[in-house]
């Protein structure tokens, strides 16, 4: 409704002729729900009425394929599949952004001034209130492992998580989990024993939880889950208390961008105070910048859950996750561990 109104206002403000002819096109391929970022896109359109933004919301795999293969190339590529984004930048598919916003962006959230992590999305566990009636809800990874082993019968078939084979985000999260603790594989084995259901994306898990098919979901994107839980009071979002991974959406301007100026303006808007304020106030994507105030900021998250937030680092080590041999080795182990406790 609001977008509608905005569009109407824009139409009234701009003479139709110039609107059609002079506006520079800008193609953004993003693995980021359009509904979630709509306030940000609207603000960008208001700030840059001369740019005709075409925003395409696709899966991570499709975004990656388009960045690699489709020509003319997209101007801006946004994806939550962090290792793949970094691999594309390492291949030289990005071009540096040299705006003031890009320069001032925290060093830990960017690489080579070419790719920028512009959101701060905690990875959470979501459970239904039904679960809380039967047991103490899990607040840590160890708790989850405990209830999976002690309440195996009750939870059988009611556990869900990402499929590492079909979801890039899921694969990345599990790789990172495995880096932090070898007990992660015990958790995988326990989930396997509980006949875990593997889903492609967070929304599918949230749907299952809402419908009651699942009682507990592991490694969901906190941004979507928190947004969803506001309208679904039966779902409880739990940021793990031992450690919580943080995923960042990464954006880069394509090397072969047909409209590099508009593309850089868009990325600079994402990183600017204005864009981050909207991110913090009107979307659940969490602002990275420490100075921004709103319900969804990295700072506020830290205040709530303490310092146990572990952002997946944006550096060359991400490349290890996309190494085919390592991926194969990981998947081999995953498949072995998930079946290891089968009767």
């Amino acid at each position: 409704m609001r977008r509608w109104l905005t569009g109407l206002v824009l139409l009234c403000l701009l003479p139709l002729g110039t609107w059609a002819q002079d506006r520079k096109p800008l193609v953004v391929e993003a693995a980021l729900d359009r509904q979630v970022v709509a306030p940000l896109l609207d603000a960008f359109k208001r700030a840059h009425p001369d740019i005709a933004l075409q925003y395409h919301d696709r899966s991570t795999l499709e975004v990656d394929r388009r960045a690699r293969e489709v020509r003319p190339a997209p101007d801006v590529v946004i994806s939550s599949a962090m290792p793949w984004q970094l691999a594309r930048v390492n291949e030289g598919l990005a071009q540096p952004v040299d705006s003031a916003e890009a320069r001032d962006w925290p060093a830990w959230a960017k690489w080579r001034n070419e790719v920028f992590g512009f959101t701060f999305e905690p990875i959470v566990t979501v459970y239904r209130l039904d679960l809380a009636r039967h047991m103490i809800p899990p607040t840590t990874h160890a708790d989850l492992h405990t209830i999976l082993t002690t309440q195996q019968e009750l939870l059988r078939g009611r556990v869900t998580t990402y499929s590492p084979g079909r979801s890039g985000v899921g694969y990345t999260l599990f790789q990172q989990d495995a880096r932090y603790s070898p007990r992660f594989w015990d958790l995988v084995a326990a989930m396997g024993a509980a006949e875990v259901n593997l889903e492609d994306n967070t929304q599918a898990m949230l749907d299952g939880l809402t419908e009651g098919r699942y009682w507990v979901g592991y490694n969901l994107l906190g941004s979507y889950a928190m947004h969803w839980a506001q309208d679904h009071p039966k779902l409880i979002v739990q940021v793990p208390q031992d450690y919580a991974l943080v995923m960042m959406r990464m954006a880069f301007v394509h090397r072969d961008a047909p409209h590099p100026t508009a593309a850089k303006a868009f990325v600079s808007f994402l990183l600017g105070i204005e864009g981050q304020r909207i991110l913090a106030g009107s979307t659940p994507l969490f602002s990275v910048l420490p100075g921004v105030i709103g319900p969804y900021t990295a700072q506020r998250l830290r205040d709530q859950v303490g310092e146990r937030l572990y952002p997946i680092p944006i550096n060359a080590s991400l490349l290890a996750f996309v190494d085919p041999l390592r991926r194969k080795a990981f998947m081999t182990r995953w498949n072995r561990e998930i079946r290891i406790l089968e009767p």
Partner: peptide, 12 residues
Amino acid sequence: IVEMPAAAFQIL
């Protein structure tokens, strides 16, 4: 078979 060490990439 190599499990590519992440550290190697950071050194590189």
